[in-house]
Design a protein around this nucleic acid. Sequence first.
DNA 1: CTTGATAGTTTGTGATCACAAAATATGCAA
DNA 2: TTGCATATTTTGTGATCACAAACTATCAAG
Lengths: 227, 227
Amino acid sequence: MVDLNPIVPPTPPATRGATREQVDQSVRTALLTGRFIPGKAVTLRGLAKDLGVSPMPVREVIQRLAAENALEIRANGRVQVPEMTAGRFDEILTARLLLEPELAEMGLAFLDPADVDALEEIDLEIDESLGTGDAEAYMRLNHAFHFTLYRASRSEILLPLTDSLWLQFAPYMRTVYGRVGTRNLIDWHKAAIAAIRAGDTSALRTAIASDIRDGMGLLGRDGLNGA
Amino acid sequence: MVDLNPIVPPTPPATRGATREQVDQSVRTALLTGRFIPGKAVTLRGLAKDLGVSPMPVREVIQRLAAENALEIRANGRVQVPEMTAGRFDEILTARLLLEPELAEMGLAFLDPADVDALEEIDLEIDESLGTGDAEAYMRLNHAFHFTLYRASRSEILLPLTDSLWLQFAPYMRTVYGRVGTRNLIDWHKAAIAAIRAGDTSALRTAIASDIRDGMGLLGRDGLNGA
DNA sequence: CTTGATAGTTTGTGATCACAAAATATGCAA
DNA sequence: TTGCATATTTTGTGATCACAAACTATCAAG
């Protein structure tokens, strides 16, 4: 059984589609913080019971996440987080490098000083989580850092695509963070914040791209199945 | 009521999830050939009746397509194809220019002569559809051309992302094709085929990028709401 | 004719059911 | 113990139901 923290009592839904939305958020958060084990089956009724809802909204959410390739519905109907392969890993890296610097640049135009302070605050908490070795907090905060920047762009297209990418690699990152640790050589987040403060788009793009490369490259493709 | 051509009789499903798969394909095809009108409500029971199935698999498919931003579930529960805005249009163009040349290049490595012949055949049919002014055939064939090339890449990441993009702009293209016609100044498909035959990745990327720019640029952002 | 309340209908949502396929457990034979 | 057929349970799927919210049609009042 997976721990999906906001387990709510069987309360009647307040607004239209609220139950589904709550399930969606819970499962997404669980995926992004690595609480599902890739390859392990996730059952519909199990999730429903964990979240205190009927299987119905869970079914819809699973279809939703399957459409984003965050979950895999196999031929036998079994639902699971897809296992990572070397080919997928390389392609995700490629896609992130194409989309995320673009998103960061778009976000830069809209960031106000308060947003930058928020980014800095998140980065400090990241340093803390690295100190205590709290992998789940690290994953949550790293996601928050990137998407605070990206969301500022008000993007309606690139942002959802990037959402999908994170949902696809995050569960796998958890399995390797435990193995190799989470400390990077260079803190590209601080470089990004400096670039934002300076309004230097080029430096920001470089910082984001480098952060992506380091983050995924460090724990790289070791132990993955062929290209 | 929308015409979703393969309306099957209420036959019991053959394999696991076959009904859902059939609904999914039908609705996707309808979206890609512009048979849904953006902004017009699409009802669950209506679709189900058109396809001769229960509302159940339709619900799942709608959630799927909503996750890909191909359908929009509004706050009141109404389901519709999102209306295009200038901001979305520009971003889709940006995203296509980032992803599709990459996909084309990846596909080039795997294309064999038979595939190239198939591409040429599709392009001939496109010319036909332009002659007869059959917008729906044009849309279907244009999609087939691009994705025959892209699918060759065996991509598991960029390809689904691009799928989502096409689902988002295709319904809107239909509404404008009727207005401005479908004939481009330069046939970039032929340039792409030539580049493929020559194994010239750079020329192929240029041809695809130009095709995208022309296709979306010609009928551009006229009559769209704000930035 | 226009306006606005109201009755009727349609719609999405969450829950439940029936069923077959799949996974798991059980127990017997070698 | 090991291998394998069989029984039991679990699981996803498609269908149906009940309900409230949303939409539409109707019709009286101005």
